[in-house]
Computed example of a mutant assay.
Amino acid sequence: MRKVCEDFGAELREFNGETDHVHLLVHYPPQIALSRLVGSLKGVSARRLRQDFPTHINTYLWGEHFWSPSYFAGSCGGAPLAVVKDYIENQKRPG
């Protein structure tokens, strides 16, 4: 995730999640299309997970896909960054 963000000129500041979703805190330049960044994050991570865990990953697929086609993005420009990071840090680690 960090490398994909860097390739887009973005910075992954926090990463965590639960068994069925992840939370990422990403600082990215305004000229980056968020949909392209998310698509790349999903595509690269799905490929890597399939390479590293080929048999285990099958239990987590949405049909033939690892990720749902949807995503949620929220802006935290007004919230203190420490509060958002704390929220993400306190999520359960992906299983």
Rank of each mutant, 00 (worst) to 15 (best):
R2T: 13
G74N: 02
S35T: 08
H65L: 05
S45P: 07
G63H: 05
Y87W: 11
V44P: 05
D52K: 02
R2E: 15
E89C: 04
L12P: 14
H23N: 11
N58I: 02
P30R: 07
Y60V: 01
R36L: 12
L61M: 14
K92C: 14
G39S: 13
H27M: 01
L81T: 04
L24S: 05
G63L: 02
S70A: 14
G17E: 10
D52L: 03
P30M: 05
D52V: 00
D86G: 09
G39Q: 06
G9L: 10
A73C: 15
D52I: 01
I32T: 13
V26T: 01
R93F: 12
S75W: 09
Q51W: 00
S70Q: 10
E18I: 12
M1G: 10
T55W: 07
A79C: 14
L49V: 04
L49G: 02
S75D: 11
L12R: 04
Q91W: 12
E89M: 00
F53I: 01
R13F: 11
Y60Q: 04
Y87I: 00
A46C: 01
S70M: 09
A10D: 12
H27D: 15
K42I: 06
A10F: 11
F53E: 09
L25E: 09
S75C: 13
D20Y: 01
L49Q: 08
G43M: 02
C5S: 09
T19A: 14
F53N: 04
V22C: 13
P94H: 14
N90Q: 06
A82Y: 08
C76H: 13
D7E: 15
E18F: 01
E64S: 08
V38P: 11
I32P: 12
E6H: 01
V44Q: 08
E64D: 14
L41H: 02
E64T: 04
R48V: 02
H27T: 05
E89G: 02
Q91C: 09
P54R: 00
G9T: 06
L81W: 00
S68Q: 12
R50I: 03
D20I: 01
L41I: 10
S40A: 12
R50G: 08
D7Y: 06
I32L: 12
G39K: 00
K92S: 15
P54F: 02
G39V: 01
L25F: 13
Y60G: 03
S35K: 03
H56L: 13
F72P: 03
A82N: 09
L41F: 03
I57E: 06
C5M: 11
R2F: 10
R50K: 10
A10S: 15
F66H: 04
V22Y: 03
E89I: 01
P94N: 09
V44R: 03
R36K: 13
K42W: 05
P94K: 00
R13D: 15
L49S: 10
V83G: 06
I57H: 00
R48Q: 14
K92R: 10
I88K: 03
V22I: 15
G17K: 05
V84N: 08
L41K: 00
L49R: 00
A73P: 15
D86C: 06
V26N: 04
V4Y: 08
H21P: 06
